[in-house]
Each structure stands twice: as structure tokens, then as C-alpha cells.
Design a protein around this nucleic acid. Structure first.
Lengths: 371, 371
DNA sequence: AGACTCGCCGGAAACGTTTACAGCGATCGG
DNA sequence: CCGATCGCTGTAAACGTTTCCGGCGAGTCT
């Protein structure tokens, strides 16, 4: 009852040997036919028939071992639930899939050790490359990055000299877009709900906010700044704290999740949006359009960044000798109902579908004002 | 300058041969030490030192080829952006990661051909198992499922006789929970915004809605039923159509995304929620709690289903001879502000954070009323 | 007609790991 | 003091595939 040696795999499934034996040819010929390279018409016929009869499917692992490539690409982000990463993931998945590869997703929870072990584990060659969007960057990171045996593309800010493929945006300028817009529409006491300052985006957005106010010669009242983390619940709590001690007429949030939390806090505190307080989020995720009123949001081009990162990665996999490249996606501002009104103006009853005074009725509107 | 044969891998990275040679032992001894099984103290010391010096990392592919397991688990869902799948994915990721494995994610877009090719491709053994949540089930599916050479667990409704591990919920009863609740709070003209009827969940929810009304002896006005797909935009459009021709005092939505779309449509049409129209979604995703007012929603235990599916899969990977099992997660109803008021009652000013008349202030409240 | 090319074929060597097996010295018990 | 036991080691086979290379028959060119 024992399987014939060298004929079928351990679990009884057919191998290339099975097919070859059944077709009466060598495994070399069988392999060639199955890969569509070479073979006489007669051989091709016999091998195809044999393969079909036994239901042969090549073993991807053995193939990988031989070809030194797995057809897998990894993506490591902090939280696969954050809509901004969902958008990135969608874009990446699309280009990765179009190259016949598949995506392995890791949720790092933003923990440094997780990320570095992930990077080090790359050395075991289980994937052909990796896209990582680290939220904190340490020297350890950098070391693991440059020493990585497989291509890595980083989405996000990185030291200027790091010899690593990198696609980034300018979130400082993104925050400035929001501030400019709010000032232009008559807001004066602009609050800021940020994520942790020890993260790369948190620090950049804080700097951007302060710089933008300074550029307009406006003194920043520290009471108007609050910090939580990049989640909904924390954003809501932070906004509650801020509202308890200050009365902003506008709120910039470092994140759409935070912005949604802030919207909750505002509505619960009986402030009208946008009449009493204008609200601007960041990342311009689908969430922004799902809220009521729809949220203005600074687009940091997450889908675009994902797409470009994936393309960079595929190119580097194809040719590892490429010099490190850096791409930049400019931010833009999508103005929607949550910051649309400078005062309770008469509503133009244009589109019955949109919120009070919403100027942009189109659905996936990316018609942002690029400063 | 050519690399020494059998010493390092094609790209110059150390192999077990490198380590063995450097330590002056055989590759068998090196391998044993590196796997922590056997070896004299002296050998262990030498091998460890050699491995550290050359920075040896074992090649996962070669290991997989030998051990016949990859340490990867696949998850195939329709849309990785839908928060219900995000919740599932999180839960699955947690248990999969705790077993030292990693998750490969596929977005099928709900297209049948995609799903079946995915299932057939399992035969190439690139993953140790797969969790799939098909939205439509054909005979082709079933064929590929039962014939699959690697374990597959299905999340969702499946033919009663299919010999496949399966975790499901009872969405018909879920819809009934919503209808009962709305009737109990005095609603009489209950509308229903559903997804496509040719999908498994769409059909089940339609049947559940009709059965629930019939059970209460209520005639269903077909004007109160509308169909779109399971996305936000389509849900919104469907709700707009429905509101244009009928005046429900409550709306059940097959999905939280649809419910959010319906909320938009309602607010834009100047219907107050819940005073004029009560709103209940399904899936009880994070989105439901992010809306204002917070949405009542029928929990179908998506995280729980994901968790259980992952456990089933891991068990079957460990022991493939297990008989097929089926688990059922009961639905429950989370009542929140969007259906909380039967009439504009006086607000208990309990928690300043919550919406008008919100009865459940706790955050990730899963305190649903299980009927 | 003979040397050459050319297409096809099969044997065998890789890819990098784990592991069955056998050998071998040292220890232990009688 | 000698045979059995035990722990350690190295050789080699396996996992399933692709591919290099030499051989061979049939044509082609001179």
C-alpha cells in the first residue's frame, strides 16, 4: 500500500515525477512542457494529458527554492483598521496583484520591537520585498533597513541621507493648508488635536501647525493644543479635554479618526459644526465623506503613496542595483461642509443630498485646493 | 573571486554550510545546534559563535520545503475596506499570529472566478490553510472547497451537507431582532435597505425581514423595500430612492455601511433620527459608534466568527483527520441613539458625551440584547 | 557524402534545509 | 575486565522543482 518512491509527494499528491512517469518521459522534459518552454508536439501532448489525468499542480515552495523568489510582498502598517491604511493597502494590493504577486499583511501595533523583528526576519527570504510605514523611526530601524537582504520601501518621513527607497508627503505643508484655509474663512482661535509627539507624523504636524500660525503672525495659545493618539476614542477624549478649557472657533485634527472623535465631542457639547466650530481632519479617508456634516480633510495622498511605493518596490525587485529613490506626493485640501461656512449663511438648497452649506457634492471628491 | 561552492548561497548570504565549515563541524551538527536539539557544549559554542559571526539566518523556503508547512494562512474576503472584514481580519490576525504564523490577505471583489481560482491555487501549497468568506456560493465553489488539498474554513452560510469547517451566524434572526425592537418601540412603517438578493447574506436578510413582519401579522408594503449593494454610496442612493416614494418611520439596513448612507440620506431630507425615523444597521462595526447619532446595529459577531474560524483552522492544520465542524455565533442587538427614542422624550443629561437620548454611553459596548 | 547545425531529450546537479541512519568513543553495570 | 548503553557526530537522502550539459537523430550546407 506504500506509495511508490519518487512518484508522488508525501501526502499522495502528484509531482512532476508522477507526470513524467505517466507520460513516459523524463522529469526534465515534463518540467519543460509544463513551463511552456520547448518540447516536441508529441511530448507536449503526452505530458499535458498526463498532467491533466492526475491533476498535477506544481508545488510553489519547491519552485521558490529553485527560483529564489516567492511571489509574495509584505506590507507592515501600524493598524489595519485605520482607514488611511486601508486605502493604502487597497492601492498596493492592486499593483502587487497586477504583477501576479500576493500581499502579506502585518499589523505592528506601532511597537518598535515588532517592526525591527519584522525587518530582521526578512532575512529568511519569505517575501520578495516589503513596504513599511513606520510611525516611529529609530537608529535600529535604519540599521535593519539598510542592511536588509530584500528590497524595502518606506512610506513616510525618513532621515534625508538614508539610502532607502522612500515615498513621503509633506504633512507640515498639509497642516499649513488647513490653517490657511481656516484663517481665510475668518476663523481666529484655531485649536489642534494631535497624536503622540514622539511619532514622526505627530512631530511633523505639531511643527507644521506652529509654523503656520507663526507665519500669519498669530500667537498660539497653548490651551488650544491637545494630544492623544491617532485613534477615534483618544481623539474624542482629547477634544473633550480641549473644549473643557478653551473655546476654539476651529479645530484641526491630525487624523480623520481624531476628527470624527472631535466631531462627536463638539456635537455632544452642543457646538454646531461648522457654524460655531469649523473642523478639518487629515488623510482624507472615506470616513470623512461618511460623516455628517462631511468633513473637510487634508489629503496626504495615501492611495497615491501606496501605489508609488508598490511600483518602486516592484522595480527594485526587478533590478536591485537601482540607486535609492525618493518620491514626494504633495498634500491637498478637500473642503467640505465641516469647514464650509464662515457664518450661518442662507443655505443654497442645491443638492438635497449634502449637508448644510456643503460646497462639494461629488462623491469621491479629490478636488482639493492645492496651495 | 567566485564564491566557494556549497559554502554560501547564490547571493552571497551564509547558509548552514557556511556556518558548519566555519565551526569545523558537519552541516547536520550545525543544523541540530541551530534548532536547539542535541550537540555537545563545545559544538554548541562553536556553532553559535560561527552563526553569529557570519550573521546566519535560516532560509524559510528551504525549511518549508522540508517540513511541508509554510507558516502562512490566507484570508479571502470581498473587500478589505469594509469595517466588518477589518474586524474579522483583526481577530484572525491575533490568533494566527499567536501561533507564530502570518496572514496573507486576498481581496476577491466578490467575483466568483477570483474566488475559485484562489481556491484552486491552494493546491500549490503556498499556505497552510485558508479562511474564506464567500458572498456568493456556487457548485464550483463547493467542488473546489471539498477537493482542496489544504484545510479551508468558510465563514458564512453554506449548504447543510457540505463537509467543510464552517462558522456562521443567523442573519435571519438578526434581522428579526431589529424588527422586533422597532415594533416594540412603537414603529409601524419599517423600511428595509438591502444588498443584492443574489448574494447569500442579501437573500437571508430579505427572507428574515419578511418573516419577521409576517410573524407580527404586518403586511409588507413593497414600496418600503429597496436594494443596492453593500457599499456606502449605493446604500445612500437606495435610501434616497426609498424616501422619495415612501415615508417610513424606521429603517433597517443590511449593513452598517448602508446604514451610514441611509443616515446621510435621512439628514439631507430633513428627517430627524431617531425622532422621525429610527435607524438600525447590521454588523455592529466601529463605524456604528462613530456616527452621530450613534447607530443601533445588529451584531453578527464578526470578530467572534473570525476568532473561531481561525481556531478551527489551526486545529485542523494540526490534525487534518478531524471531522468537519460547524459553529454558530448568535446575533445580538446593540441599541444606541439612532433607535433609542420612541418619541422626543426629555433627555436624561447623563453623559455629556453621547448623542441625544443615547442609552448606551460605554465605548465598545457589546451589551446587546440577545433575543 | 561528410561535417555542421539544430531541436529535442534525459541524467544529474543544484536550491538550503531537516533527519534517518550508522559509526564511534566513553561510561556504566556486572 | 568486557559487553551493553548512551550521547554525539558525520554521511547522505530526502523535500519538488528548474536547468545545465552532453548525447543523439535528422536535417542542411558545401
Amino acid at each position: 500500500m506504500g506509495r511508490k518512491r519518487l512518484q508522488e509527494s508525501a501526502d499522495g499528491r502528484p509531482t512532476v515525477h508522477t507526470v513524467a512517469a505517466r507520460a513516459g518521459v523524463s522529469i526534465a522534459s515534463a518540467s519543460r512542457v509544463l513551463n511552456g518552454v520547448g518540447g516536441s508536439p508529441e511530448t507536449i501532448r503526452k505530458v499535458r494529458a498526463a498532467a491533466a489525468e492526475v491533476g498535477y499542480v506544481p508545488n510553489a515552495i519547491a519552485r521558490s527554492l529553485q527560483s529564489q523568489r516567492t511571489g509574495l510582498v509584505a506590507l507592515a502598517v501600524e493598524d489595519i483598521g485605520n482607514p488611511v491604511y486601508v486605502a493604502m493597502m487597497r492601492a498596493i494590493e492592486a499593483v502587487v496583484a497586477s504583477s501576479g504577486r500576493q500581499l502579506v499583511v502585518h499589523a505592528t501595533g506601532g511597537r518598535i520591537d515588532n517592526e525591527t523583528t519584522l525587518l530582521r526576519r526578512l532575512a529568511n527570504r519569505y517575501v520578495d520585498g516589503m513596504i513599511i510605514s513606520p510611525i516611529r523611526v529609530t537608529d535600529d530601524h535604519l540599521g535593519a533597513l539598510v542592511g536588509s537582504p530584500v528590497p524595502v520601501v518606506v512610506i513616510g518621513q525618513l532621515g534625508a541621507d538614508a539610502p532607502v527607497d522612500n515615498v513621503r508627503t509633506d504633512s507640515r505643508r498639509g497642516v499649513a493648508l488647513a490653517v490657511d484655509h481656516l484663517l481665510a474663512t475668518g476663523r481666529r482661535r484655531i485649536g489642534f488635536v494631535n497624536g503622540p509627539l514622539d511619532t514622526v507624523p505627530g512631530a511633523a504636524r505639531d511643527a507644521g501647525f506652529r509654523a503656520a500660525l507663526a507665519r500669519h503672525g498669530i500667537h498660539l495659545d497653548e490651551e488650544l493644543v491637545e494630544v492623544g493618539d491617532f485613534q477615534y476614542a483618544a481623539g474624542r477624549a482629547a477634544a473633550v479635554r480641549l473644549l473643557a478649557r478653551a473655546s476654539p472657533d476651529a479645530l484641526v485634527c491630525a487624523n480623520d479618526l481624531i476628527a470624527v472623535g472631535a466631531l462627536h465631542a463638539l456635537l455632544a457639547a452642543r457646538r454646531r459644526v461648522p457654524e460655531d466650530v469649523a473642523l478639518v481632519g487629515m488623510d482624507d479617508t472615506e470616513l470623512a465623506q461618511m460623516m455628517f456634516p462631511q468633513l473637510s480633510s487634508v489629503s496626504l495622498g495615501s492611495a497615491e503613496r501606496g501605489r508609488r511605493a508598490a511600483e518602486l518596490l516592484l522595480q527594485r525587485i526587478a533590478d536591485p542595483t537601482l540607486p535609492p529613490r525618493r518620491e514626494q506626493v504633495p498634500p491637498s485640501l478637500a473642503v467640505r461642509a465641516s469647514s464650509g461656512a464662515t457664518l450661518p449663511a442662507a443655505r443654497p438648497s442645491a443638492d438635497p443630498l449634502d449637508g448644510p452649506t456643503a460646497p462639494t457634492p461629488t462623491h469621491p471628491s479629490s478636488e482639493g485646493v492645492t496651495a
